[in-house]
Design a protein around this nucleic acid. Sequence first.
DNA 1: CGAATCAAATGGTTTAACCATTAAGGCCCA
DNA 2: TGGGCCTTAATGGTTAAACCATTTGATTCG
Lengths: 235, 235
Amino acid sequence: MFKRAKQSRVFQDVVDQIQEAILTKKLAPGTRLPAERDLKEMFNTSRGTLREALRVLEQKGLIEIKLGVSGGAIVKQIDTDPLMESLALLIQSGEVSLEHLSEFRIKIEGSLVELATERATPKDIEELERMQARARHCYDIQDWESFLKTDEAMHTYIGTMTRNPVFQFVQKSIHDNIHRYYQDFLPMNRERTLENLQDFDKIIAAMKAKDGVAASATITDHVQRFHDKMTGKRP
Amino acid sequence: MFKRAKQSRVFQDVVDQIQEAILTKKLAPGTRLPAERDLKEMFNTSRGTLREALRVLEQKGLIEIKLGVSGGAIVKQIDTDPLMESLALLIQSGEVSLEHLSEFRIKIEGSLVELATERATPKDIEELERMQARARHCYDIQDWESFLKTDEAMHTYIGTMTRNPVFQFVQKSIHDNIHRYYQDFLPMNRERTLENLQDFDKIIAAMKAKDGVAASATITDHVQRFHDKMTGKRP
DNA sequence: CGAATCAAATGGTTTAACCATTAAGGCCCA
DNA sequence: TGGGCCTTAATGGTTAAACCATTTGATTCG
């Protein structure tokens, strides 16, 4: 019925006030907050307490703190970085395994590609083709590391094509985390790389034809193959 | 090519050391860290700086701080709460709208229910039926608020049935955030509530029959209807 | 004009003290 | 004996004042 009455922590009140001002756009991104020695007066608190509040806001990704004269706390444009950091913590702690992530990816990436196909602009297709050309070049000179980077960039770009920040975050966090631990268990080789290239050829062709179902099917198969290799299954 | 050399901030070093110890399980959940006045000696720093570090770790969800004698910093079991908080910030700031979230939900919740159906135990089904009975009771006495709570609990429970923490987080965060802003635009009424009940009857029946496809189809339709109402479309 | 130097603003750190909360033990009195 | 009250000590929360380190811009000098 009742929640524990919150123990009053001064710094928490400061955090709440500044956060409220940022979320309601009373403080726009780019705005510079007053200096610590001024803020401390405004909130009628001490500098130590005020700094604890700023530390929390910084950790939440709401402000950024710069050094030197004309430095100080600057209101940031909110982004998904704190979300990504939290997810990385969950993975590093073992609460979430790469198998969990990969299973999720199998279920979601098809829908994501389908949505991206619906909303793809000619510019998007051009951009993907540029990236695919770069990937092919990496394959030719057998630069696997750059190939992986390009591959990740293509997946992430398809996420942005959905024009939905939720899909964008999901796609970015999946690939960011999968690739971060990639080489631990999945060495790159010529054969797998070629498969990747061919899959993306198919996907781009399907996107051009506005065939979301085909694009979806191709990527789902692509992802399933990755998952099977990772979990040690062999066809 | 190069990243800016990190400006040395003492508190950051303290954060990194403690975080490392927690993630590598050198400090197990439940462990109590030494008192601030002792930690400050160990890290050879001041109490203010040390407290900034503790504040960051608390914000990350890695420790919890209790007051009084035998209080102090206690290592927490990592969970998805910080992730949820970050997402809530994105939504409150308007970076992510409820339409975005709802569109995502349409694509994912079918797969999620399918997976839950595959992995459902008899106990899971029993639990769902208990919840459904409670929802029906709320409907009978026209207690819409409790009905919504039960509805959310059922969706969240289906998330746990996947046995995959990624799906669990996704499901929890979607419904947590959708319901938080629910009444702003979607007033509950007798008709919609009855639809909800009937949908869940179908889903539970499909789960009993291990018919993942039917369960998936039902929930997707359910979610799509919700989305259409929210975005103002009428069939 | 350009480079070196200096000065001021600002965040980062340290120290020392005091306040507030909590748990535990002891004391008093019925 | 038992229950309630008080004291005490440990611990986080807060304050204050000073100094250090970094950055920027103005000033000075060759």
